[in-house]
Design a protein around this nucleic acid. Sequence first.
DNA 1: TAGGCCATCTGGTCCT
DNA 2: AGGACCAGATGGCCTA
Length: 190
Amino acid sequence: MKTKNRPPRRRAPVQDTEATPGEGTPDGSLPNPGPEPAKGLRSRPARAAAGAPGEGRRRRPGPSGPAGRRDSSIQRRLESNERERQRMHKLNNAFQALREVIPHVRADKKLSKIETLTLAKNYIKSLTATILTMSSSRLPGLEGPGPKLYQHYQQQQQQVAGGALGATEAQPQGHLQRYSTQIHSFREGT
DNA sequence: TAGGCCATCTGGTCCT
DNA sequence: AGGACCAGATGGCCTA
């Protein structure tokens, strides 16, 4: 992900895409077999089967879409679409990889993206807290990196949050508590 | 049926 | 210039 410092974007006026689900690919869009079926509750084949034959969701382009363009423009758009699909697939693969390393209870239920990110954040924080706790307790006195680690961690937290961390949040135990609470909420299915 | 989640399309913006 | 990134729009699928 690139780091960009750009002003807030404003979406261009909405084009009337005249969505007509189930019409397939009237514009000759590339068929979308997909590099791999989406891993999850719903697979692409399942989606495709319910819609147009052999196709997932494909909208018919509106006046500004490929249907009203020159061939070269259409080709570029289709290639761009394909790249975007690949990019999103890579992103989803990364999400899946992340899901697989986050311990959580309901293994039968796939974590959503927002759940994955939130859980991962709290998991990292709880691991950090654990490391800090262990390193400081195992090395009594001024020896070892424990106290320094903890001080460094606290400084980082204050910088990142702009000093807006709550009292509980600033403590390693707070992260652990939050993570276990979240795990519990997933177990309850809430 | 409503709401949540998701895949895809699309055009704008930024980067190389 | 072309590709990557981003976010809005759209519509399908699933669950409560």
